[in-house]
Amino acid sequence: MDGDNAFLTAFHLILSGDPALAQIVALSLRVTLTAVLVSCLIGLPLGAALSLARFPGRGAVIVVFNALMGLPPVVAGLIVYLALSNTGPLGFLKLLFTPTAMIIAQSLLITPIIISLTRSVIDELWSEYEEQLRSLGSSALRAIPTLLWDGRFSLVTVILAGLGRAMAEVGAVLIVGGNIAGYTRTMTTAIALETAKGDLALALGLGIILLLLTLVLNAGAFLSSRIAQRQAA
């Protein structure tokens, strides 16, 4: 019964074009996509570098990043909260309870995912490419962009894994964003709030919209990667 209500609620919400909902959706997208972008800027080259580099303690670094893939969102949120809090080391930035804080927390959460999965994709590619690239005279550093570009179709999946985690995440953004109506309220924190209010139909309705959104993003990434792959093999 709640399920039926939820679908109806979701439909009504979408069709009504409610500006508050539009704002929540827009903020969710902005926060999540920016966090994914930031994480890719850091994680893709770092993951590739970790794959190519040989240094003492490399194994330990890999294990640490693998473990950080399971970093609980609440912990990530708490770390960012304490850092950005007025009395914390970065308090002077005045970023706590802002969308920027949420982006930072989500980046912290998904960068290890991008790094670890990128490393494993590039590991495989490097074993195929190493001799050829070295023969052409490519340094390991110069090989990083080559490998990232040639691994692009596998890396789309890596990025989607990060995106999925960021889209679904509530613990970290709730702590550092504060779920402020009209300012830091995202899809997931709104769902948590409506659940707390006992309005399960609305909560689930929002959940359905979030799911649809994630589905659309994934389908878009899948299709464009598929088309590009067909053209570039």
Partner: peptide
């Protein structure tokens, strides 16, 4: 590409 991506990220993060 890297430069423009960084600029975009910074713009999106800015309040």
């Amino acid at each position: 590409t890297l430069f423009s991506a960084t600029a975009l990220a910074a713009a999106l993060m800015a309040l």
